[in-house]
Write a protein that binds this DNA or RNA. Structure first.
Lengths: 249, 249
DNA sequence: CGCGAGCTTGATGCCGATCAATGCATGTGG
DNA sequence: CCACATGCATTGATCGGCATCAAGCTCGCG
């Protein structure tokens, strides 16, 4: 486990550093979960390359040929789709241990952009090799299926949020989801730094940035949060939870 | 190809009838797509059972143990998730050749309800066996991955719709998607019968049923559709397309 | 120090929700 | 076969939440 304090950026190293799945502290969150150590060693030989992505750069663009999945090793990403007329929608935020690129399998082309919101590193997982290896190891195969399935379930949750929640409920659900994922990674559940702008939050939640900002202010007035730009202190997680569950409605 | 006229209910047969993937007219849309005929025969032996689901009955409930995927053989389904406080959201409508149950893989439990909107039949695909067989046949493995990936991409499209489109645009996108899928199945692209209520459409699109009804009426006034309850004639598909692409914005 | 990106806050207006009444089809029992 | 119930759809009137437009404000950075 890492230091359990405020979620701050990991120091960004430019030199390619030697890491293996078998010694990665994210392996319980990532693809190797549930695999035996000898199986993980096979994975290691496949996940040979890593890639650094500077803040603001894109890992892949919609339309590019799909070759590999990417596991976030450090940093933070957003994915966004856009329609022909330029509307665009943030479809997710990804942090350490999460996979990027699953959308590309279906058409052999990426269907969204993946953009680093801070200096980041990813492990490159050549998909063809992953399929090959997962024909050999049923644990790996099943883990991949689980990850894809959970992505589908997550998307359904977002659809519920977008389809039937009001602004406060959406932001509450968003914050609870973030803090929970950060906590899983050994960070504080009550203190966090947002890596994205109000506009990006708004896009994800189907709101305008002004509404996001107002809702943050409202939460602060109500003593639920302390908001200083992107630094957030959760003072009353129960209140957020109540909003999501709609006990007051 | 089937009769290319209005999409009407297939006659509902109660007796279990002998069908095999290898002789199924949906195989180009379904799991066997891209597999050799001898591989499909192996699939046949796995997909041994079928199940009839009467209109209004559920194929599976959220919370039930996940065992199998289901391929829609005939009929029409909706899937819906619900939050603790009773809000619920239709997450999709499934027609012949489409898979149900992918959401259950991640947690070994179904996370949504699947309800038949007309008398239907599904092929039962025991998931454990499917994984086994897909370790043997890379074509099957890849097809499964593609199907899951496309579901993720579809969900992202719905998120875009829910996050940034207005009522008319949502309904237009919905209708175009429906007619396109029906056309793929050999039905008319301009004449269709809705299998779902206004409320279910509204839930899917993040609108209230009154808004759905009003928007149908508006489309009729504008000469884009002819609406008689659930019978829809598309008179001007171009106008729908223009709405979705937002050329007027 | 001053610029600019991002954030906050206020005033106003509109889209879709809500509440309510009526209409229309299907089916059931007298 | 009609009377009535029931579920679904349509349509109208009103209301409210969020978008939009428009200023300022804050903070990091060249």
């Amino acid at each position: 486990m890492q230091h359990a304090n405020t979620h701050t950026a990991a120091p960004f190293k430019l030199e390619p550093f030697k890491v293996a799945c078998s010694s990665c502290n994210l392996r319980e969150l990532c693809l190797p979960f549930g695999m035996s150590s000898e199986q993980v060693e096979k994975l290691d030989s496949m996940v040979a390359t890593r890639r650094s992505v500077a803040r603001g750069d894109t890992l892949f663009h919609a339309g590019e040929a799909f070759q590999s999945l990417f596991a976030v090793r450090a940093g933070f990403f957003k994915t966004c789709v856009s329609s022909e007329d330029g509307r665009d929608q943030v479809t997710g935020f990804q942090m350490a241990g999460e996979l990027l690129g699953l959308d590309g399998i279906g058409t052999d082309q990426h269907t969204c952009d993946a953009v680093a919101l801070e200096d980041s590193q990813v492990c490159v997982i050549p998909f063809h090799q992953l399929e090959e290896l997962s024909r050999e190891f049923s644990d790996l195969q099943h883990q991949l299926h689980k990850i894809m399935s959970r992505e589908i379930v997550r998307d359904h949750g977002v659809m519920l949020l977008l389809g039937s929640m009001r602004a406060e409920e959406r932001l509450a659900a968003f914050l609870l989801n973030l803090t929970q994922r950060l906590q899983t990674r050994g960070f504080s559940a009550s203190s966090l730094i947002l890596r994205m702008t109000r506009e990006e939050i708004g896009s994800y939640l189907g709101l305008k940035l002004e509404t996001v900002s107002r809702t943050f202010s409202k939460f602060q007035e109500d003593g639920v949060l302390e908001v200083k730009q992107r630094q957030i202190q959760v003072l009353d997680a129960g209140a957020l939870q109540k909003l999501v569950n709609g006990s007051a409605c």
